[in-house]
Design a protein around this nucleic acid. Sequence first.
DNA 1: CAATTGCTTGACCGTTTGGTCAAAATGAAC
DNA 2: GTTCATTTTGACCAAACGGTCAAGCAATTG
Lengths: 219, 219
Amino acid sequence: MKIDMPQSKNKAVKEAKPLSRIQEANRKAILDAAVDVFAVSGFRGATIDEIASRAGMSKPNLLYYFKSKQQIYQQVLEQTLEDWLAPFAAIDPEGDPIEELRRYITAKLEMSAKRPEASKLFANEIIHGAPVIGTFLQTTLKDLVDEKTKVIRHWVGQGKLAPIDPYHLIFLIWATTQHYADFDVQIRAVAGTQAGRPGFAEQAAQAVLSIILNGIRPR
Amino acid sequence: MKIDMPQSKNKAVKEAKPLSRIQEANRKAILDAAVDVFAVSGFRGATIDEIASRAGMSKPNLLYYFKSKQQIYQQVLEQTLEDWLAPFAAIDPEGDPIEELRRYITAKLEMSAKRPEASKLFANEIIHGAPVIGTFLQTTLKDLVDEKTKVIRHWVGQGKLAPIDPYHLIFLIWATTQHYADFDVQIRAVAGTQAGRPGFAEQAAQAVLSIILNGIRPR
DNA sequence: CAATTGCTTGACCGTTTGGTCAAAATGAAC
DNA sequence: GTTCATTTTGACCAAACGGTCAAGCAATTG
């Protein structure tokens, strides 16, 4: 599975597209179904038939809207990437470090709880070598991370955070927050009844925030 | 540590097992190849042909040693599980909490660096709903985790650790350490040249240990 | 050496699956 | 209601893949 990243951000280019009511509805139904199917089965494991069936249409009909399985996959990935990164981009260099990071971690934990499929979708893609979003990671994401590492380094320089490597702090936050989505099966298996009880997500947030924030507080 | 897999049938029943020199070599070659292939392609994406080819033999020959793709998969999973959990099981209730956890985290980070495929194998299995090791998670692993949560709770009670929920501490450690293996592509893409330099793993270990250990030190 | 057993593989089969196509059904426009 | 474009699908194809089988090859044994 070798794919090059098309990065179809060409909204302006293909503006000669009316996109009828029925088209819009069907595309949405397909993409919604696709997130779930790709998340649980991976790219290879997912079948067009299942996506079509979940979207309430026949396979050829689905292929009428997206000309290949890959195209659906890329579209779904692109669509979710933006939401996923938004809270990270929103980290404010002028804000209080601890508060900014608390807000970011909380937002990511909420996303993991609310849309675990999106997280699993990424996890799958990256574990398999990021064949589709590889160049995105090396360009857009790297730039964004570089920007934020500067911010964190600045905070450290000001003595507002303990001296830690910004990259690894970011990785630790990503790892921890996404873990609750990607490994939910393991968490439920291990935590047993506790994981099902309401308030579990809040308890998780409290624990994660406590450890990380105390871990980076200036000493 | 004894780990019995749900699917692993007759180990004791099939007592007479000669296991010739050539058999042993071939089985090992197959399993070694299988770890890599399953790790990068997932169960569904992996093909018997590729495993066989990497192991240097024909597909029918591979099927002579393992009668199905699933059997290889289960075997590989079982084989790696023990190593993977050993350092966790080795956490000593009598030892110093901070030192015990430092040892555990360091061991897991080293495993992630040395054998990332093993970690990816698990990640894949769990993200896809743990179809094979599901019951293992609910039984053996849960018991082990319950045991260790008691230890951590005891430490907290003695005032040797800050008051944190043991489950979430364990999840945080798992998440962080495995992240370096499972998401290595993303880490390399984002950290750029830095990630390639020697000493990067040590730098990661230092940062992770610093944040986590300071995060749980009694205050 | 002969013979029994263990090891290896080319050829093959049935199924799944991504994708095509022509034709039918539906809707929009007049 | 007629016409034209859009939407939908049953039937089909080719490739990939898991798994089988019979026959060939190597090794061990007596």
